[in-house]
């Protein structure tokens, strides 16, 4: 028996919004530590890694490890039926070929259940090595979303250049060029609003705007986003989900052959 109950059901709604444009299907791997999902987009340029820890749920039970392959479009449709304040419970029997989502309104007056067929997905699983990154940038997630949106008007690619002074986002295209510089916040009153840079070596990398814009669909999950970069390795864009886990997006850089 698998059962995961979350009073803050809107978290699951937001998680689906954060992955459904990038992934069409994915496997939710459940064990007694929680729920993990790892999947590449169709073009195999980016990778999504989601972790929801068991202790972040209001009730969590997983008697046997189960892997539930799901069509994410279908899951998104179902979760759209949940109210923002609803409690959401996912449950499945051992070896089941369906998963059930139960939504309860705060006053328990409305209870809905949606049963969905599971899929057998044979997806490649990648091992992500432990990496010490040359630069990590923490900044407000809404600011990052704004920058990605603004710069994608100028070109398909965005250059992210991080030095100890700050971080510069640039794009160039037919209509001209755009540069946005963010300085490290001098004094941090509210950490959520700060730009904080940790840098061992300066790094400049180029990324496809389209994917960065997909990643920013996670903005509502966290007030802050963390970007981690090293030369010639994938960028990590991480949104921490309060008290329960994180969603990380890995994006391969564009590099000279």
């Amino acid at each position: 028996m698998f059962e995961a109950r979350l009073l803050r059901g809107s978290i699951l709604k937001k998680v689906l919004e954060a992955i459904k444009d990038l992934l069409t299907q994915a496997t939710f791997d459940c064990d007694d530590s929680g729920i993990q999902l790892q999947a590449m987009d169709n073009s195999h340029v980016s990778l999504v890694s989601l972790q929801l820890r068991a202790d972040g749920f209001d009730k969590y039970r997983c008697d046997r490890n189960i892997s539930m392959g799901m069509n994410l479009n279908s899951v998104a449709k179902i979760l759209k039926c949940a109210g923002d304040k609803d409690t959401v419970t996912m449950k499945a029997q051992d070896n089941a070929d369906t998963v059930t989502f139960v939504f309860e309104s705060p006053n328990q007056e409305k209870v809905s259940d949606y049963e969905m067929k599971l899929m057998n997905l044979d997806l490649e699983h990648l091992g992500i090595p432990e990496t010490e990154y040359s630069c990590t940038i923490r900044m407000p997630s809404a600011e990052f979303a704004r920058i990605c949106r603004d710069l994608s008007q100028f070109g398909d690619s965005m250059v992210i250049a991080c030095t100890k002074e700050g971080v510069k986002f640039s794009a160039t295209g037919e209509i001209g060029s755009a540069n946005i510089k963010l300085a490290q916040t001098a004094s941090v009153d509210k950490e959520e609003e700060a730009v904080i840079i940790e840098m061992d070596e300066p790094v400049t990398l180029t990324f496809a705007c389209q994917y960065l814009n997909y990643f920013t669909k996670a903005t509502s999950l966290s007030p802050q986003v963390q970007l981690s970069m090293s030369a010639d390795v994938p960028l990590v864009v991480e949104y921490r989900i309060q008290d329960i886990g994180h969603i990380r997006y890995y994006l391969a850089p564009k590099i000279e052959d």
Partner: peptide, 14 residues
């Protein structure tokens, strides 16, 4: 010009 790399080349298949 720069080319888009795939993600698989950076990580190990399991």
């Amino acid at each position: 010009s720069k080319n888009q790399k795939g993600i698989v080349g950076f990580f190990n298949k399991q």
